[in-house]
Design a protein around this nucleic acid. Structure first.
Lengths: 272, 272
DNA sequence: CAAGAACTTCCATCTCATGGAAGTTTCGCA
DNA sequence: TGCGAAACTTCCATGAGATGGAAGTTCTTG
């Protein structure tokens, strides 16, 4: 009432669990954000637990979101992301323009490589897999569209890192998680590799993220020559010929880059 | 104001511009919803105009949404859907599970048909294009992933309609928009065709949505045999052999349906 | 069949969204 | 190059709408 209400910067020390801020919008997005690759369908209570929001609040929000098609309720009562969100996501231009333009070229690569072909952009300190093509029996890869994978242990990631800003490299080189025996966790080693990648124009990984998977990748450039994405092939490790794909990727990348520049891509991919 | 607010079924006649309801969540979603295929990037003022919300309100909401990555600001200051939304959309199971499972099969069809291959589900009274494969030079089709197209003028649409509920058919047959000279706008005619489609298991359209485009489509079934999606090929009209694709589609659909049933698809696709 | 968990409804309290007004920046045009 | 208009941003008094504890209902599980 009449009394207090100090603007902001008061708490912070206390709970401060979910940095959602007190706004309704923030809370609604926190609810949506509680869904991820391993929590695609959640019960009300689960959402409440994961967001730290009181059950009643979640209940209200979730129902409102459902009414608008942002969430959908599965047959078992669990909730999942609704088609409205999917449709909207379809409009995210970096990804969609990229995807629209790139898919046909990825097809071409796929025909030659017969291994999983993927394309990714930078998203914070990880790669965001924008799209991927894989035959009915390509090796089981971790990357699905929407996956966020580490920069230093994937082919596309190394490319984006090598051509990324100093600021980005510093942040990533600061902490290199290990995924397999072959993961490069030594900053100087990686740094040297990045230089090579820059000069030779492609990157290679050998079982650095998952055992049995090898990949090569090349950069994609937009307007003005800025690297805005990376194109790569992931194959099973026993395929010694994977480096054979480099020229194919490079030719494709050249053609694709021209197209991308035309369709106006070229900003994007900033480190948030 | 102070007065009324009868629960539901009141307005409809009057303005009723944006049936957003007074909730914050509703308003935030209205902002997001103001983005569509033809309005992928919008200025603050444009959003305000299109949603009917006061500029100040939009200003606040948009900034909040941007802070959370739900919107992104392009280089020119315009806003667009952000990668957070895209990533979330990636989790929408009907579409993603569907897409994940179906893409390889679509590949196979594409190799044989060499024409645009698409897959769609029901979304209200339209189809929602879930995915599409097209070579670098397939005919320019209207369907991109995320497009919502009419049920009675597309191959996939007719399939979904033919296998849809009575309620759905009634609603659609009630108003059949015309797109070309060949569009079927006579309810009895269409009704007869739907029966044929049900019995023979595939649908054909000839220039009913856009001149020069022909398509064939077959149903995809999930757990329990319910039709949950449709698979189709779109080709240029002078391709007399398009019906040659029917067996291919049917074989593929059979295999795909089995897979879909396995991965638990089978609810979804209800008429909201 | 009982106990606990998940979900829903209710409602008094007060926080936070609201949107008009006014100030600042950007843009288009002469 | 300068002026008017449009786009954007900041401010803040007000009250609409969000909040969440409590209690009731329905589903699970042992």
């Amino acid at each position: 009432m009449s009394g207090g209400y100090t603007p902001g910067m008061s708490e912070k020390g206390a709970a401060a669990q979910h940095a959602a801020g007190p706004s309704v919008t923030g809370r609604a997005l926190a609810v949506l954000d509680s869904f991820d690759q391993t929590h695609r369908r959640q019960s009300l209570a689960a959402i409440s637990r994961r967001t730290g929001l009181p059950l009643t609040t979640v209940h209200r929000l979730v129902h409102e979101l459902e009414r608008h098609g942002a969430l959908a309720r599965g047959a078992d009562g669990d909730y999942e992301i609704g088609s409205k969100i999917w449709r909207l996501g379809t409009l995210a231009s970096v990804h969609v323009e990229l995807r629209e333009v790139a898919l046909p070229y990825m097809e071409d690569v796929y025909q030659l490589a017969n291994d999983a072909v993927q394309i990714a952009v930078l998203d914070g300190l990880r790669i965001l897999v924008v799209d991927r093509i894989a035959g009915s029996r390509s090796i089981e890869v971790l990357s699905k569209p929407g996956s966020r994978l580490p920069l230093h242990a994937t082919g596309v990631g190394k490319v984006l890192l090598a051509f990324g800003g100093q600021e980005l490299q510093d942040a990533v080189l600061g902490s290199l998680d290990r995924y397999t025996d072959s993961t490069i966790t030594d900053a100087p080693t990686l740094k040297a590799q990045l230089l090579t990648i820059r000069s030779q124009g492609f990157a290679v990984t050998r079982e650095e993220l998952a055992p049995g998977a090898t990949s090569v990748a090349v950069p994609l450039r937009g307007k003005g020559g800025t690297v805005i994405a990376a194109l790569g092939v992931v194959s099973s490790s026993d395929n010694a010929e994977i480096s054979r794909m480099v020229p194919v990727l490079q030719v494709t990348a050249a053609a694709l880059s021209k197209k991308l520049a035309q369709s106006g891509l070229g900003e994007a991919s900033r480190l948030r």
